[in-house]
Design a protein around this nucleic acid. Structure first.
Lengths: 336, 336
DNA sequence: GTGAAAGCGCTAACAT
DNA sequence: ATGTTAGCGCTTTCAC
């Protein structure tokens, strides 16, 4: 293995000069830098990560805790993970993957052994058991999602409340007066993840503000559930013309169900989804949607973490503004 | 930070004794072991990962390279990643996540800096540019999938050839004589990933062996493509009664398309899929399938890697036997 | 069965 | 602008 002393010898300088040439932490003359770089190249030198971590107490590794629970939409999680890795590499950091299986122990382990410098935790629950630990750790962390008591923690997520409002307001602009929200499976709400509830809040608040008739229904996934909820909605709100769907796999079957019940989308019924843009765009009827910006959340989360590692102060809460994209599933309400 | 000398002092022993008590690399008296363990517990001692890596030249971290390319089925990749992490933890290893974005540089970086002890590479291409590098690296690796020239490399995957044969033989047992394989989008074949082609080989070989009429068609994803391919198949092979589908997102629309064309599944047409069991079971018509055992592949890949790290010799090729599960989409051929 | 001590390869004072 | 050197915290010979 070629080490820093080898490089130093070859370049005719001291090891510290090589180190400083690499880190840029002190000025190096043009001539020296050239010689060092040449030596590094010629010898194929790579600093030993463990030695670095030991001497500098920085591992340049972030922990990413990904969920495996049911109800989590997998491609979203994956896209998020990829964006985290990509963003971390821009800051010369690597990413250690942890599953939720190990729970708090895993977080404590990687933090206490100094395997990682900082932690990124996805899929935070309203009353997440890991919160006290994260608060007590000597390493910075960023949470994806908002718990009930985010004090002392840095959290980031799509602004689901604003997203709910944006959906309603889009429907209002199109003249709709009777709307419904078809949500995620009941367990998502029972588990009390904040984001689903915040969407409901935004939806309801905006509907009330605009004096719309509105209803909210959690819903299971699958063609049968789609059919049932469609029939139920039309019975309950015969004048229904606007539907917001926060349940990605239900989207296609639900639109099918409505059409089988004789309602054209968007002719008779406008549909807005909360889902990744790719999904919305790829459906048979491209669906107007508020994007779930996993990639953006991942990149921003890493930025926050890097700032914290630099000792900077960052906002406790970062809410990403919703972005609504019009597609073929929404239209002005037909005048009867 | 509490270190090994703190533990040693508290237990009244030397640091090396603590180290050996932890590693079990030399016998420790019952009494001493007790005292050391107590001291560790009382002080909350955690060995510093970097220091360990430096002294032992083992980081206890594996690199996992995941793909992000189109055509890769994301949930499969994710499930695989999770099973790798879980398996690695059983061997007291952690997992560093790399994307393919960095390509060969990323592999070289984590290997040369001794950040990882070994590498796991997913989604290997027939002529993968990373192969020479992997062969030259001083660290062991395991590939998921088979390249054209696997010499000197350790590879593991589902036995796609046997899977193709198993599908055909199941159809034969049910009396079918005219069969077709609806494959993945053309780019999967163009990219020349081995697995898709091996499935075709097995399918064709078994069909020929049993003197079946058979056809193979790559196919895009989506309802339109499903409709087109269904019509095409029935025109080309009017007597068709058995279809193997290796294209997960196409599965549901394809069955719909057949039924809209007046063919009942499984009454008129038997369908077998290559996809994860959960997917096959969750469809409207639960589909007979050969499982894509991502979790098993992940766990086995880690086991292979651990054996190699131990200096053991492992087989160059590990082919997991296909497992076919009968569900509601296959039936004995109707006698006309 | 246990201890002493020499590194592992790097960083960051402290010098000059 | 560069060199010297003392650690960082652990593992592992070597010695008893």
């Amino acid at each position: 293995m070629v080490k820093i002393t080898d490089v130093a010898r070859r370049a005719g300088v001291s090891p510290s000069t090589v180190s400083y040439a690499l880190s840029g932490k002190r000025p190096i003359s043009e001539e020296t830098r050239r010689r060092v770089e040449a030596a590094i190249r010629e010898l194929g030198y790579r600093p030993h990560a463990g030695a670095r971590a030991l001497a500098s107490s920085k591992s340049n590794v972030l922990a990413l805790v990904i969920p495996l629970r049911a109800g989590i939409h997998v491609p979203v999680a994956m896209q998020f993970a990829v964006s985290v890795v990509t963003a971390a590499r821009r800051y010369d950091h690597d990413v250690l993957l942890l599953t939720q299986e190990e729970g708090e122990d895993g977080l404590r382990r990687v933090a206490d052994t100094a395997l990682v410098d900082a932690l990124l935790v996805m899929d935070v629950q309203l009353h997440d058991p890991r919160l006290p630990l994260l608060r007590s750790l000597d390493r910075p962390s960023v949470l994806i999602g908002f718990p009930a008591e985010p004090d002392g923690l840095t959290c980031i997520d799509l602004d689901f409340k604003a997203a709910g409002e944006a959906c309603v307001e889009h429907l209002v602009r199109l003249g709709h007066r009777v709307v419904a929200l078809v949500g995620s499976p009941p367990e998502v709400y029972v588990r009390r993840t904040a984001f689903a509830q915040r969407l409901v809040q935004g939806f309801t608040a905006a509907a009330d503000r605009h004096r719309l008739a509105s209803a909210v229904h959690p819903c299971e996934t699958g063609a049968d559930a789609a059919r049932r909820i469609a029939e139920h909605l039309l019975r309950e709100q015969p004048a229904l013309t606007g539907v917001v769907v926060h349940n990605e796999p239900l989207l296609e079957p639900l639109i099918d169900a409505f059409e089988e019940l004789g309602l054209r989308v968007p002719g008779d019924l406008s549909v807005i989804a909360l889902c990744p843009d790719e999904v919305a765009a790829a459906l048979r009827v491209p669906v107007t949607s508020v994007a779930l910006p996993s990639a953006e959340v991942g990149a921003r989360a890493v930025e926050l973490l890097m700032k914290k590692l630099d000792g900077a102060t960052v906002p406790d809460a970062t809410l990403l503004a919703p972005r609504l994209t019009e597609r073929a599933s929404t239209a002005r309400r037909a005048v009867v």
